[in-house]
Nucleic acid binder design. Structure first.
Lengths: 129, 129
DNA sequence: GCAACCTTGACACAAGTGTGTCAGGGTGGC
DNA sequence: GCCACCCTGACACACTTGTGTCAAGGTTGC
């Protein structure tokens, strides 16, 4: 019952119907469909559409950028390839690190991330968990 | 001494001089400069240019996509915002998870990544390290 | 049963991406 | 000192992205 048609969804989210179809096309917000093919926007979709607009405006990125980020997390191969290329930046071609080295590096990176997050929120200790 | 000019670099990497300037413009491969401003491509840049071409061809992505991935890892704010938006995908608007919940989830995710990597390479045990 | 919606498809158009080429001026090697 | 290179900037052109509008046909509500 609490599902809006495309015009109603457009009215409450600030997007145009045309753009809602486009956003669906690039795979970012895909509403359910009625038996006859009408798009049905539920509360979750409406919220995503509103935050989507904020995200794009605040960081000056495009739908295609976000679509690529989505592709990155769906295609593990692609993810690994791009990460590998970007990680190699400004790195001496000393020699290829072993898998163990890489895992170790990743683990340290993760520890740093956790530490940064912990200090950013409450000073609540994490080791006691 | 082992630094090539833009034409030489183009010849050995398969890019055109024009495109090497463009790749530099979008921030993906930025060669050093001579005193008079000539671009100097060292072995590291040449290697990056070759692997860059492979990466683009094999996954059918564009320079702008990779530029965005680079931006993602340089701008932590942007990174967090896009991750948050994408993570919320297909998620019930039950309620916002606490920071502790999120950390726990990230840790489990990391464990799964490590496990997947370990099984993908040698069957060498990691716990003995 | 008709007005107001929905669907997909197409034409249009500005801005950005990817690429070539050319002009005007500086640099380097022999 | 000359020719082949380097630099930046610009024009050009095809393709993609983002967006509006309009057409032809189906659905829904009252």
């Amino acid at each position: 019952m609490d599902a809006l048609t495309i015009h109603e969804a457009a009215a409450t989210t600030g997007w145009s119907p045309r753009m809602l179809r486009y956003v669906e096309r690039v795979g970012l917000v895909e509403p359910a469909r009625s038996a006859k093919g009408y798009r049905l926007y539920g509360p979750a979709e409406l919220q995503r559409l509103r935050t989507l607009r904020e995200l794009l405006d605040e960081h000056d990125i495009g739908l295609s950028d976000l679509a690529f980020a989505l592709r990155l997390r769906r295609d593990g191969d692609l993810r690994e390839a791009t990460d590998a290329w970007l990680d190699a930046e400004a790195q001496q071609p000393a020699d290829v690190p072993t898998t163990e080295d890489w895992l170790h590096f990743e683990q340290e990176k993760h520890q740093r991330l956790l530490a940064a997050l912990a200090s950013r929120t409450t000073t609540h200790s994490l080791e006691t968990a």
